[in-house]
Design a protein around this nucleic acid. Structure first.
Lengths: 347, 347
DNA sequence: AGGCACTTTGTAATCGATTACATCGCATGG
DNA sequence: CCATGCGATGTAATCGATTACAAAGTGCCT
């Protein structure tokens, strides 16, 4: 039972029409007290659950949101996903997760999902898709919200205060007495990484440190790239005493590879990351990092897409350029400390 | 366009009936060549995509699989999820992800999803749900596959060779010369953790080491519990020289907390984990661990559920007790080494 | 030439809900 | 006492596809 019982079964049992059953469930105050009781009792007895396909077909809504994730899902993203799922499910929506990174797959799948009416809205955790296919996605006809991706022409976004986080790291390093800095970047063109760098670099400049002096290492947010950056770091002559990595994962990779070469953290180099994933607290040494409010970010993104879904077409336009920016917090760990002596380099 | 065009539009454009359009798409060889061309051209021009809700309603299939994940998603699980998604989407199925750990939410949501015909099948990554609600879930009427979850009465399962992995760790430790062992457990009653322990303990017994001598620390697979185990470890008088943690996350927590107390890994203690998550390679020291074939496991679970879905009711019963067991590989890192001297304890 | 089998296409019922519109009864006011 | 209006309920159209069945066309065999 449960599966297979239709609204007609309930109607028969309660001796009313299907219309009344439907109304009882959708707008209980539009049916009289006694009838309502009878119907609800019948629902209970049969274990009736409305068939979603039929509902969707009729009202042209799938009660489903697609979350597009990057190919590689870091702990940071899984936290976001869980938060989104919780928020969506509270409002009766389901979360469909898709890795649409493969460009060849991208469009067909998006179309199959969105155009086929399988999802009512999109949450993008993946800027790459927007950049490349902005207009295609926009024309899909379903509302979109970017989470951690910049608002495109018409895509509302939920962002963390990347710039502020970068600045916080800079101030922390400066307060410790550092004067020579390194930066391990995110993937080229990534919005978050640029903002983090910007915040970091500006704060340093305000303190009289030329941005040209910031030694840059290329990364892509993932661990191996952090390790590569570490390897590069080992090769430079007068290395920085403090390195800001644009993600925790890279910071971990970086630390791992320089430690393997005998460099000690934070005595020889201070390192800071970005994200605040749980695991970063448990590295050795525990990571100084900027914590992004992942739960709140997920919740906000869900709220944003739900607002768009509930809103009529008219109001939708108005909301489209909104940006929600959430604050971040510097969490000082054991990976940062004052520089050893005045600027004596390791190697 | 795309959204909003129905099969009737296509039919009109191609000057055929809707039946022919449907057939062209579902069984191209059942329509003549010229007609097929006309229809396909019309499909292309209109950008038609079949409405999934209508399809589902008619054929009583949602082309959607629900994956039930634990409340806390570790990197190990995200890897599985991505693998499952890839495999499912290749067959036109979508993946719905749900954290159904909250027992109060569990049943209502499961019913809303499964009984409402929103999903055709379940993949469980979460044994807790089975244990507690075995019969309820079974009665939902949708096929279920356990991944990393023991086959219940009638649930086919895909498992990794936990026992073999445990044994591999034991042999590795023994080969290094260790004689005093510790074990950091998973959550009470967890199937994987028991198997891992069993493999570990049996292999040690074969080598003449009493299982009573294995010092046990309680954990729950997650990082903080590993750190607690580490704290407990520090308190014991003659501590083990080699510790097997039932998950990589716990191993990281363990290492972190003993290192903080000045214990060095692997000089003072060797540590091994289980899972083979990427990040474990980048700890300091890199973790010796048992790698589970996550991609293959996800793929197999997807295959299993798809088989069940394609199979008629009749064949379904036959397949129901199947277990697929995938091999694991020991990956030796820098966290294990021969014991310092013969059994001199630290502290 | 007529009948049979087969291929190709169309007609219309169907899935299970929602909802506009119709209907009925009853109370209220003129 | 009848008209009016409102609340409660029922009737039936509708969403967009699939598919059983019917019909029409073609070729082949006797």
């Amino acid at each position: 039972m449960g599966r297979g019982t239709t609204i007609a079964d309930v109607a028969a049992l309660a001796q009313v029409s299907t219309a009344t059953v439907s109304r009882t469930l959708a707008a209980p105050d539009r049916v009289s007290g006694p009838t309502r009781e009878r119907v609800l009792e019948a629902v209970r007895q049969t274990g009736y659950t409305p068939n979603v396909a039929a509902q969707s077909l009729r009202v042209a809504r799938s009660m489903m949101v697609l979350v597009v994730v990057p190919h590689q899902v870091t702990p940071f993203f899984s936290d976001l996903l869980l938060a989104i799922d919780r928020a969506l499910s509270q409002h009766g929506y389901g979360m469909l997760v898709g890795d649409l990174t493969d460009p060849a797959e991208q469009e067909p799948r998006l179309v199959r999902l969105a155009a086929a009416g399988r999802v009512d809205g999109l949450i993008l955790l993946n800027g790459a898709i927007l950049r490349d296919g902005d207009r295609r996605i926009d024309n899909l006809g379903v509302p979109i919200v970017g989470l951690c991706v910049p608002a495109g022409s018409s895509v509302p976004a939920v962002l963390a205060d990347d710039r502020g986080g970068g600045a916080a790291v800079a101030h922390h390093f400066l307060a410790l007495g550092h004067r020579r800095f390194g930066y391990v970047s995110g993937p080229r063109g990534n919005h978050n990484e640029m903002q983090r760098y910007l915040g970091f670099a500006r704060a340093l400049r305000s303190a009289g440190i030329s941005n040209n002096a910031i030694m840059r290492f290329e990364g892509d947010f993932h661990i191996p790239s952090g390790a590569c950056a570490g390897a590069d770091f080992l090769k430079v002559f007068r290395p920085p005493t403090a390195v800001f990595c644009a993600s925790d994962m890279m910071a971990m990779g970086f630390i791992h590879s320089v430690q393997a070469a005998g460099v000690s953290i934070p005595q020889d180099v201070s390192v800071a990351g970005f994200d605040g994933i749980e695991i970063a607290q448990y590295c050795s040494p525990s990571l100084t990092t900027v914590e992004q409010p992942r739960e709140a970010m997920g919740r906000e993104a869900a709220r944003a897409i739900l607002d768009l879904l509930e809103a009529g077409e008219g109001e939708r336009a108005k909301a489209s350029n909104s940006r929600t920016c959430l604050g971040v917090t510097l969490r000082v760990g054991a990976s940062s400390a004052p520089p050893k002596t005045d600027g004596e380099s390791i190697t």
